[in-house]
């Protein structure tokens, strides 16, 4: 199944990746080559096979409900692109 240009644009939007108009044909072609490789899976008979999400089929360990973290805002925000009054700044959020 080959992706159309418009689908590539939709995927890029979902992934929030800006697409260069000039690169779009090449990107579409490469993605289709990769999907061609992936589509080989469809020939495999997997009827009745349970999907495997984790290699080790163990179960989740639980953590005791204790506060172990202290305020390290200054250290964490030292790597932030834009902060003010302890807040991370982004272009206006519209609801």
């Amino acid at each position: 199944m080959a992706l159309e240009r418009s689908e590539v644009e939709k995927i890029a939007h979902l992934a929030r990746l800006g697409l260069n108009e000039a690169d779009l044909p090449r990107t579409t072609e490469t993605l289709n080559t990769i999907l061609g490789l992936i589509d080989r899976m469809q020939a495999v008979d997997t009827d009745g096979i349970e999907p495997l999400a984790h290699p080790l089929e163990t179960t989740q360990r639980l953590r005791a409900d204790r506060v172990t973290e202290t305020n390290r805002r200054e250290a964490y925000q030292a790597v932030a692109p834009a902060v003010q009054d302890g807040l991370y700044l982004v272009p206006k959020v519209i609801e």
């Binding site: 995927i11 979902l14 992934a15 990107t27 993605l31 992936i38 899976m41 349970e50 999907p51 495997l52």
Partner: peptide, 28 residues
Amino acid sequence: RRIMVGTYALSAGYYDAYYLKAQRIRRL
């Protein structure tokens, strides 16, 4: 490229054919 492929594989309508299928093969 890999983000796009992964986004597509998980997107509505393709999840079973790609992601679940791949996980079944993983068990095999």
